[in-house]
Write a protein that binds this DNA or RNA. Sequence first.
DNA 1: TTCTGCTGCCGGAACGTTCCGGCAAGTTTC
DNA 2: GAAACTTGCCGGAACGTTCCGGCAGCAGAA
Lengths: 384, 384
Amino acid sequence: MGRHEQGAEGARMGRYDQGVHADEPVTILTVAREAGVSKTTASDALRGSGRVSERTRETVVAVAERLGYVPNGSARHLRKASTGTIGLHVPEVLTRSSYYMSFVFGVVEQAARHDYDVTLITSGQRRARPPRVDGLVLGDPLGGDPVVESLMATGLPTVSCERFPGSRQADGVVWSEHALMLTRLLDHLLATGARRPGLIVAGDESDWAASVHRGYQEWCAGRGVAPLVSRVSFDATGDEVRAAARALLGRGHGAPGTGGGTPGTGGGALATGGGALARNDDTPRTGGAEVPMDALVCAPAGAATEVAPLLREAGGRVRLASCVDSAATRQADPPITAIDLRPREAGASCAELLFELLSGTAQPGTERVHPIELQIRASTAPRP
Amino acid sequence: MGRHEQGAEGARMGRYDQGVHADEPVTILTVAREAGVSKTTASDALRGSGRVSERTRETVVAVAERLGYVPNGSARHLRKASTGTIGLHVPEVLTRSSYYMSFVFGVVEQAARHDYDVTLITSGQRRARPPRVDGLVLGDPLGGDPVVESLMATGLPTVSCERFPGSRQADGVVWSEHALMLTRLLDHLLATGARRPGLIVAGDESDWAASVHRGYQEWCAGRGVAPLVSRVSFDATGDEVRAAARALLGRGHGAPGTGGGTPGTGGGALATGGGALARNDDTPRTGGAEVPMDALVCAPAGAATEVAPLLREAGGRVRLASCVDSAATRQADPPITAIDLRPREAGASCAELLFELLSGTAQPGTERVHPIELQIRASTAPRP
DNA sequence: TTCTGCTGCCGGAACGTTCCGGCAAGTTTC
DNA sequence: GAAACTTGCCGGAACGTTCCGGCAGCAGAA
């Protein structure tokens, strides 16, 4: 001791000035001395624990405020065996999607509200040591990602956004009703006069893509529409997506029955239509296998805007919608109907669930539904 | 003590299993006991400090390896008054740009290489306390951002990507020759037959935008081209950018002289052309104020792709280029000529400079140039 | 011999916090 | 009126690390 005896400090300039440049660190001992109590009482008063009279509590709080006391995180976490930090993993393949940027900010914002920091974990970096965190948020984990696997093996409390398409599941899951919302979107397309909506979607590594695909298949079965699907890779380029769209456009014109067209015309487009479901004759008004595509739903982020010019060139007959809303879809010409996944709120919801798991407020195994919204825009207006 | 006497642990399953689930925390005391030395010697041996014989050093290292010893960050940082974490700020306005996502990953990757964590700091969150970090990276700080101001006031070592357009400067700066590269781009446009390239650029809150604008003006002055500039807001929507493009397209057709056209036709497009520079008669072959725009350079990320359809409708006469490369420009149809800012490497470079500042290897005031590249694509091919 | 210096190792304190147990004084209970 | 309980406060230990100072043992110098 004796290194800083004065204690009385007074307010200083600036916003973070206290205790940062090391001329006079304000510890809980400084506060206690200044308030005329012991360090225990000061600690109790500030954290609302222990037994402290209201009067002294107010005094201590006032003094702490005045001195600009900021608790030392390292000391606190050393004592409490926690870190005050949560880890956040987002798959690097999808870096360019603005969805993840918003998601990340949602997590950071919510964590800040709980006075937690957020440490980013990328799939790229090989980690020599386990992350120094109290828990983990996994943003849309991809099945088979080795980093995700090892993160789950840490035993740390974990929340994933969408389910993990692997063997084990996170302690908490925040998911959205993508299949249901896609159903609404498809019904909307039907209502505007479309008869045969097609789908471009990525593979089932992501729970989200799998849900979208499943929702589409079930809707087709229920409505008696012959499915028209093209799978693309997860980080599909514009060319790949356009090739898939062209392949879908080319199908349905040929002979009815087993789907016609040339599967795999370009870019690995895999057509799955024209099966038994197309023979459902109860609802003859909707699209059988011989009906050409007159609406296209693009699942991957950014795919819809990539495809838009192609559809326009093809005559503008095909309605267009995206499963991921973004500035690009909002501002396209015409604006593109899309499902707003509300990524920022999704991130906040994941962080919140994690904190509840950490505090014991929520039980492991908790699942929460994150509401999403269908934004109907001009790209799916009825065609003249 | 006495809580875990066995000590000998042996290798375990999994990758992060050591010391994470709390059944048997392995501290430096465990290692010391197992190696038959004191905790001081163990610590010295592991960190290469103090005086330890080579023989015992090897023993201790081997034991630590075997037990999977991971130093407790909180304890270390409590003792050393550091945190093992750096803060990363990116302006929230620009969240949707994939540039920042890549930048962030670059920082995280480089930090991981130094065994540092990265904590995100957003402009949105109001911070009750100074961030618990050893240093800061500011990604393209905007002038007047209060969070940036207060971060700079912390006195923490700081590196900014691009200069801070405010009074004080960060301790380290990583910047790119945007003005020079724009000159190359404009020369390229001239070489493909363009006579009057226009520019859409955001305001001078960002050093990057200011550099681009300055580079354009200087190039125009040097080449005797009448400038044709439209300013948009930093987070310009597609509509705003398109309105700016339309305004630029409308100019140059009218009476020669003071620029003609209708300034501010839509979306706040502010035209600055037609001044004294346009009267430079030494180089009559290039574009005077009466020459219509035949090439358009879009500075804001994403602006070029938003404008592309408009230019196509207008006859495809106008060449198009972007100051920010991205998946969207690469994959556009036709692919758009763009400046690749190499964001991931920029982020890594910022982090690296910060670590050198922290270790004293680099001096405060260091500036480093981050190389960028011009990617020439079909959108600026010579017109028939 | 004694003094000095070097090597290899170690005990203990310190970093700033939380929390267990305890102690006076006051209040209720039987 | 003593026992039991409550209130308000406190000292000290502990978290796991780093580092200062010290202490033997040995070697070389005076």
